[in-house]
Design a protein around this nucleic acid. Sequence first.
DNA 1: GGCTATCGTGCAAAAACGTGCAGAGTCAAG
DNA 2: CTTGACTCTGCACGTTTTTGCACGATAGCC
Lengths: 251, 251
Amino acid sequence: MLASQRKDYLLHVLQTQGQIVAKDVSNELRLSEDTIRRDLRELAAAGRLQRVHGGALPASPAVADFAGRQQIASDAKVAIGRAAAKMIQRGQVAILDGGTTTLQIARQLPHDLRATIITHSPTIAVALVEHPSIEVILLGGRLFKHSVVTVGAAAMEAVARIRADLYFMGVTGIHPKAGLSTGDLEEAHMKRALMASAAETHVLASAEKIGAASPYVICPLADVDGIVADAAIPKKTLADYRKLGLSVVQA
Amino acid sequence: MLASQRKDYLLHVLQTQGQIVAKDVSNELRLSEDTIRRDLRELAAAGRLQRVHGGALPASPAVADFAGRQQIASDAKVAIGRAAAKMIQRGQVAILDGGTTTLQIARQLPHDLRATIITHSPTIAVALVEHPSIEVILLGGRLFKHSVVTVGAAAMEAVARIRADLYFMGVTGIHPKAGLSTGDLEEAHMKRALMASAAETHVLASAEKIGAASPYVICPLADVDGIVADAAIPKKTLADYRKLGLSVVQA
DNA sequence: GGCTATCGTGCAAAAACGTGCAGAGTCAAG
DNA sequence: CTTGACTCTGCACGTTTTTGCACGATAGCC
């Protein structure tokens, strides 16, 4: 492995996992920790990351707020992202919702995959600049800063003009009775519109969302086609979803 | 094996494997490493690949490009950004072009300024998340990865529906005869459309752009209303612009 | 306050590098 | 056909870069 590839790898790890543990990387790559530490030092000098005891953290102070949440890119989210990324086939058109979990999907997409990604999240659009063979369509509109996605009438209109194979939806609550829900009314509308524009909708479910309900309901659980579930979710719960006719993929 | 065949082979390896290890290739082709190194050096000089210790990697212009440029936030760009940011008054609607200089404007906007920023750059949209009192409108469309801005028919249509007070335009060339120019045709169209949607257009001029001309012409210099100029630009040049009727702000 | 993991530095071996040079081959002019 | 200029390739040599190890210093945790 070439030295510059190693640095790319380190930055990739940082991006997908939100942190670097020097020891882990040295084990994975079968290199001495000294070498990894040297690389980290150089990357830190170049301002590409922030060096800390034991490893490194993302530098980017500008996006600190969003990145703050991003850093809790728990293993679960990474795994869900990887599982969902695998579901996108060559040539397909997929919609990625805003949110930290969907951002993981974008980052885990194979670098040589030829596909089209439609998104209303500028963050995801920027992340996909790294993927040369992916066509990116950004849906415009008013920026809702809390979630960093576009919403509103303009965004709704843009959605109406597209038609996708897949839609990966992020939510804040998945409840057997209350269905799928989120924290903002505009966002709920947007999610419904995106769902209507896609042939198949899959919900991304990390464990902490199961059984929770947020103020604004998107739709009943049965309205979506599938669920991409965290490994920590009990088999029994997943069986309930299957009974509703949902396809279940466990990360 | 002819030298040119060898170079084709090297580029083929690079394309299929994503990397070249000089030693491996020299073994495969039964040639000395010196020869391979020489070839790599020449291909690197021609910009066909990126030379690294031990071999070579793809040149990847799009990625390295923007990331590279982003770090060169020279003092000049910061100063231009600050000067331009001051021109935006409370309550106004301003269009920010894509590019590293306009990104500086976004970063330098006062945190308590109430205004609306319209942009086709997801990078700028994300940067403005930090500014709670700024309303952000993101223009959607196909993402042009080289500059990280949206372009195309959808973007043009979105532009047609807006009307702004100010437009800050980034360019790559400012030439007395050739006018304002940029490196991509779609972008040139987009800039013209944005100009048409704004009451006033100001060009951001850092010193290295003066006297330069890029392939795609946007418009004659006299079509814009003002110029925000780098401190390094000679007074005489600025006087010429004033003669054309442009308002000149020096950072 | 003590313990352990991590860190930085100096050092040496190995790998990769650039440069100069010589031999082999090519080509065109004479 | 011969000669000289030129290019290409491999080798030798000294230089630079990279890497792993040893050692003492330091930071974080209990």
